[in-house]
Design a protein around this nucleic acid. Structure first.
Lengths: 129, 129, 129, 129
DNA sequence: GTGGTCTAGACCACC
DNA sequence: GTGGTCTAGACCACG
């Protein structure tokens, strides 16, 4: 279910776990009110140290995406789906803006950038949409 | 001359120094055959510890962008300009491709992405080009 | 286990550390998948500053011989044994070829060279093999 | 006349200059009693800093291979030819002995080493001797 | 003057 | 506990 965790790509593992859970929520793989798998279960699924998952769950809780229910587990918050979708969109927009800015700073012409984006989009969306 | 180093943005300082030197080379601020500022000089310019600059220079040397000339300094390699320009373009293309892929994975419609890119580009290139 | 580090034989200490680790891997003293001793441990074993060992480990990582696993240690790469064995053989062959070439350039007769090699080999392999 | 100086092969330039002069003497390109080219002249020939040549000449003088004659220049010593020839032979023997020892330490079989040496010698001496 | 190396000690993120 | 990074200051060989 989860794409693999890559321990050597520079992004902290706990951060990768957070992202994947958020993505799963944004994709409605987990719905508000449901329980997230237990720390131990998730750790096994992702082949990761349980402490790391616990830390990730803590972060998610701080962000209001999940809520701890004592003796029961971590529950998906009511507005988690929207939160995660919005955050994802915001992150993507940020990344696009930043890379375009760097392209401009690098003296790459607007046409060059456009051409490359077009090609890449055609490749990605060729079958769908 | 150099944009400022940000010591707490997660990217190691020696890495930021590397990037800025590469950018300067790509922009022909330093030409092949010239000498890079000495470790101590550059350290002062960038307000960074000389050892950190030394490490950066070591990395650049490993990448074949500069060459150490004993007792003289670090010399820009003959093909450094092209190397740096190519690498910069490659990095930007990679980032674009990756963010577009994530956008697609996030179910954001192609039109939405296009609209956002257009807006951003107009903002950036409004006066120039 | 490790031959001693000689701090004043001209070869940088971090380089000597690298070599010894490579030799240990080539000799299967460390097997793929195992963890190398920690930076601090190795530093103590070799009576060297931990930073120096850290640098050596960094070099080995760059060469693909070991991999850093965050919070865990440095892991011997899957193909490290072969890599190290091959590199060692390659280095020795290079040195032999270069010294023979110089001998020829120095007008030393082929017979002279042969005689000397024979004598040296008999001395070295007298008991073994 | 002189093979080129390579400023980035790790061997100090003054050391390379020394060797080349010694080789020239061993090869009787300079004969006892003759004058070596002046520091400035040699520096130009070898495309090297005059200070570096001066240092090399100093070393050669210390080794008794050349003698300073005030107001005249550096004179090749009477026994320089033999000294240089002997030293060259000694250096080559040392290198052979050391590489054979390392080969043995690396568990490479005596036969393997012999086979490689034979092949290399045939390649080098194929036309001559 | 240059870069290269080593040491020392500190702080960080991660597991 | 682990490796990674940064700083500080020292010494060296080289040109």
């Amino acid at each position: 279910m989860f794409p693999v965790i890559d321990p050597q790509n520079g992004i902290p593992i706990f951060e990768q776990v957070c992202r994947q859970v958020k993505f799963a929520i944004a994709d409605k793989a987990y719905l508000p009110g449901e329980l997230l798998p237990s720390v131990r279960e998730m750790a096994q699924k992702m082949a990761v140290n349980p402490n790391t998952v616990a830390r990730s769950y803590g972060e998610l809780q701080r962000e209001g995406i999940i809520e701890s229910v004592r003796g029961t587990g971590m529950q998906i918050a009511a507005d988690a789906t929207q939160l995660c979708q919005k955050e994802r969109k915001r992150l993507i927009q940020e990344r696009i803006a930043s890379v375009l800015q760097e392209a401009k700073a690098s003296q790459i012409s607007r046409d060059d950038v456009n051409r490359f984006i077009e090609r890449e989009m055609n490749r990605l969306w060729k079958n769908s949409q």
